[in-house]
């Protein structure tokens, strides 16, 4: 059996305050979310790697018209650059702009139990 990173393991890590990704042993690129093969070169030689939990905001938006199931308005969603990879998360506190430093602050959970990393300014 493969020890390739799964969604379950990625989620467990997020809940414990860690971010996991995959580095391709063939092309060297790193992804912030699990896949069965490298999206760039197709290689299955993907090594699970621990990503930094602090980074800078790559892009962000504040959502005022949420989907059904979310009561809150005006929450901020950001893509955070962690160095070798980026991940998407929700801001748990404060307002940030592109280039601002942020760190992992916990996680949010949706009505199906899927988790997303949460970040706050550092």
């Amino acid at each position: 059996m493969s020890d390739r990173l799964t969604h379950g393991e990625w989620s467990d890590a997020v809940e414990s305050g860690d971010l996991l990704g995959q580095t391709c042993s063939d092309c060297g690129k790193t992804q912030g979310t699990p896949k069965a093969a490298c999206p760039h070169c197709g290689s299955r030689a993907l090594e699970t790697v621990e990503l930094p939990t602090d980074g800078v905001v790559y892009t962000e938006t504040t959502i005022n018209v949420p989907p059904v199931g979310i009561e809150e308005r005006g929450y901020q969603v950001a893509v955070v650059d962690l160095g070798e990879a980026r991940v998407m998360g929700r801001l748990s506190d404060g307002e940030v702009e592109i280039g601002d430093p942020v760190e992992l602050s916990g996680f949010t959970e949706d009505d199906n139990g899927y988790v997303a990393p949460a970040f706050e300014p550092r």
Binding site: I63, P66, P67, M88, E109
Partner: peptide, 11 residues
């Protein structure tokens, strides 16, 4: 993405 985007509340 169902697992890696929707849980953030992305629209």
């Amino acid at each position: 993405h169902r697992q890696y985007e929707q849980p953030t509340g992305l629209t």
